[in-house]
Design a protein around this nucleic acid. Structure first.
Lengths: 340, 340
DNA sequence: AAGGATCGTGCAATCGAATGCACTTGCTGT
DNA sequence: ACAGCAAGTGCATTCGATTGCACGATCCTT
């Protein structure tokens, strides 16, 4: 556990000055040195098992080559592919990623951010939904490069990489309409999340465009993105008298809850009623019936987020961007021609 | 993006020496200072928006309060809960975790480890299965505190936190035997993984204990832990003539593949044949039928791994431990009394 | 009242690498 | 033969926080 050799040890062993050793080990600067010296220093560094102290370098260089990532809950299947995308982009530039979960708690998020600031990370990717205050977020973005992932703030003053909620919902609505459905219900997500609101608005826009009026009985909002809530809302829709022939749920969990409620009611999906989800989570294809849903390219979102963060690190004054990832309609067994 | 105030700025504003300011901001040392000074320094630090430079502190203290985690693939549902356990344990001590995926590639793992060493992380948790060479691993463990998670090496010379494969399998075997099954087949996992081998050995031990001979037709090994392989192996078992009334698969994916094969063969699970998995992954309860399986406490494994790592960091010369996490039998619909 | 203990604070030396500047070579050109 | 130049290398400072040591002041003890 003893401290290994440092640069000056390598330099001494190679009979050159530290600064020369430093340059010899840096591929960019080693061109200015004589080949023999470079060769010798490198060989000796190897022999000694020298490992560059990145901490000392960070202090001197004022950059840590690390970025912080905050997600609300890593066990949500959306996030692992996102993180992989982030890591894959970052690693090509020699960056590492620190990861933490906020558990949807603003206080926890705040404290994670504070440790990240202390650690002088070069940037942060926030997928955590809170830190409600847009002002706080902007203040943060003024101190350190920040990219939002899977969420955004109102005036787009912070770079954000998001899924195209509106596009996905309207594509799904068109799919159902194309199958002859006219009474399409919506189970909205929690209305205190940006996705819940965006998807509901997109649904209402599509519904109003398709027909004159919209029957209010065809809309319910869930309180959380959970199977339980999907079940509850579906029962509500079935009993409300709106006579839906299709249910467009705001995400896959809600849709799965629907399936249970429909089965319990003695109905059959998709013969009697079609159901759709959103996200295409793992196993969506293994439900009974397999779920028709919208796929959001999570890996690519992470990759893009990291890419934009790196750009921001390189040029901090760049104007914020809003990157929208294209959704894809995945048609499976849970939707069918109306009437079956 | 300008550099914020440093300790000496705070000190100057509070009209004290840096060292005094440093002590005032450290809860342990501030007791030795006069309350007024402590109060004043803290207030001024707040007013100035001072943020302690953790990099400089790390350099001086020779500890980074960061640990590195390597998993083969974060999108495998086992790992997110483990990581949460790790983070939850670490965060109480002010530690952060860097995460990276090795993709089962030893070269990638090696290069991740090298960056971790350069960054002078205080310790590492390795859930990546490779770095085959036990010697390399021991050499690494001599340089830096290391805890293995979900794997171990032969002579237990590195601390490891693992699931009780043998215990889980024998408990499952007993469950099936208790239901009257006598011809129990096993779909083993890949034999180049420690879990694949451990589970197969445990199965064979249980089978041999239960009956005199063991019918070789009741054993197949999958090449990967995948649904495809589960399907292939199950077909093989059904055609081999061993007449299994139950299939004990080495993990949930393999079991799910079995379900498909059984259905295709016109048989019914569990009436005609029982199937069991291992891991209790998310959605195991949503299969048709819901899967009887063994639950491994992944969150707790992560928590324990982090706990042991912290202990190792505090006292590097501690002798390696082998921590075995207890499995739990989760009985669901995929197992039934023999003969329905 | 003098010596000693205690308390609060300042001084200055680390930690390890990067780098602007200056210096020594050796070579070219006139 | 010497100015001029370039290539290669060394020197010394810097990044920001921590901490052993020392010093002065205050208080206690006998």
């Amino acid at each position: 556990m003893s401290r290994g050799p440092k640069l000056s040890d390598v330099a001494a062993a190679a009979k050159v000055h530290q600064s020369t050793a430093s340059r010899a080990l840096d591929p960019n600067l080693s061109r200015r040195l004589s080949p023999e010296v470079v060769e010798r220093v490198r060989r000796i560094a190897d022999e000694l098992g020298y490992s560059r102290n990145a901490i000392a370098a960070s202090l001197r260089m004022q950059r840590s080559r690390m970025v912080g990532v905050i997600v609300p809950d890593l066990t949500n299947t959306m996030f692992p592919p996102m993180f992989r995308g982030i890591e894959d982009r970052l690693s090509t530039e020699g960056y590492s990623a620190i990861l933490a979960n906020s558990d949807f708690r603003p206080a926890k998020e705040r404290s994670i951010i504070d440790t990240y600031l202390d650690r002088r990370l070069d940037g942060m990717i926030l997928a955590s939904a809170h830190l409600e205050d847009a002002e706080q977020l902007e203040a943060l973005a003024r101190k350190v490069p920040v990219v939002l992932m899977n969420r955004e703030i109102a005036d787009a003053s912070v770079t954000a990489v998001i899924g195209d909620d509106a596009g996905g919902i309207s594509e799904m609505f068109a799919h159902l309409a194309g199958l002859g459905h006219e009474r399409i219900a919506h189970i909205a997500g929690p209305q205190d999340t940006s996705t819940g609101v965006a998807r509901r608005d997109a649904f209402l826009a599509a519904a109003r465009k398709a027909a004159r009026g919209f029957d209010g009985r065809l809309l319910v909002a869930a309180e959380t993105y959970s199977e339980r809530e999907g079940y509850r809302c579906a029962r509500h829709l079935l009993e409300a008298g709106g006579g839906p022939t299709a249910i467009l749920a705001a995400n896959d969990w809600l849709a799965i809850g629907c399936l249970t409620a429909i089965e319990e009611a003695g109905l059959n999906c998709p013969q009697d009623i079609s159901v759709t989800g959103f996200n295409d989570m793992p196993f969506a294809d293994r439900m009974r019936p397999p779920l028709t849903t919208i796929r959001i390219p999570h890996y690519r979102m992470g990759f893009e987020a990291a890419d934009h963060l790196l750009a921001l690190i390189a040029a901090p004054e760049t104007t914020p961007t809003r990157v929208v990832m294209p959704p894809a309609l995945i048609v499976r067994g849970s939707t069918a021609q109306r009437g079956g």
